[in-house]
């Protein structure tokens, strides 16, 4: 099953962290939205998110979905980027014992998944310890 269109549509977010800011109330959205859930505003300006932040919570996935099996065990977390936007992603290149709330992270470009042996390769952001 090809999901090229769905993947392609998300490229500005997955590759470049493009987000938007409500011109009325300043709320930031990643991914971009049509209506501001804070104030109902409909005007936005495009912003690029900072590529550094800190870990808010984390886990280690021991049993993963089938397309992630070769990567298990892998760490995942929710990160708050400088600027306040939060996102979920994998934490790469980390010793699991070093995982802690508040860990400084930066974003790296990685392959996230493959659509089978013959399908497209799907890239995007992962977190790595910033040290």
């Amino acid at each position: 099953m090809s999901t090229s269109a769905k993947y392609w549509r998300g490229i500005p977010q997955r590759y470049r962290l493009e987000a938007e800011k409500c011109t009325d109330c300043g709320a930031q959205f990643f991914p971009p939205r049509v209506v501001c859930s804070g104030c109902g505003g409909r005007e936005f300006e495009e912003i690029k998110l900072d590529d550094r932040g800190k870990l808010l919570t984390y886990t280690v996935i021991r049993v993963g979905p089938s397309e992630f099996c070769e990567q298990t065990p892998y760490a995942m977390g929710i990160v708050e980027l400088e600027g306040g936007v939060r996102m979920t992603g994998q934490i790469a290149d980390v010793d699991f014992d070093d995982l802690e709330v508040g860990l400084p992270i930066k974003i790296e470009f990685r392959k996230i998944r493959e659509e089978g042996e013959a399908g497209i390769l799907c890239y995007g952001y992962k977190f790595v310890p910033d040290k």
């Binding site: 919570t57 984390y58 996935i61 892998y74 995942m76 929710i78 979920t88």
Partner: peptide, 17 residues
């Protein structure tokens, strides 16, 4: 889900927090 999260994983994130 795109990034490899599972439901046990999501609740684990909630648990750690």
């Amino acid at each position: 889900v795109y990034h490899g999260i599972t439901f046990p994983g999501l609740y684990a994130l909630l648990a750690v927090a």
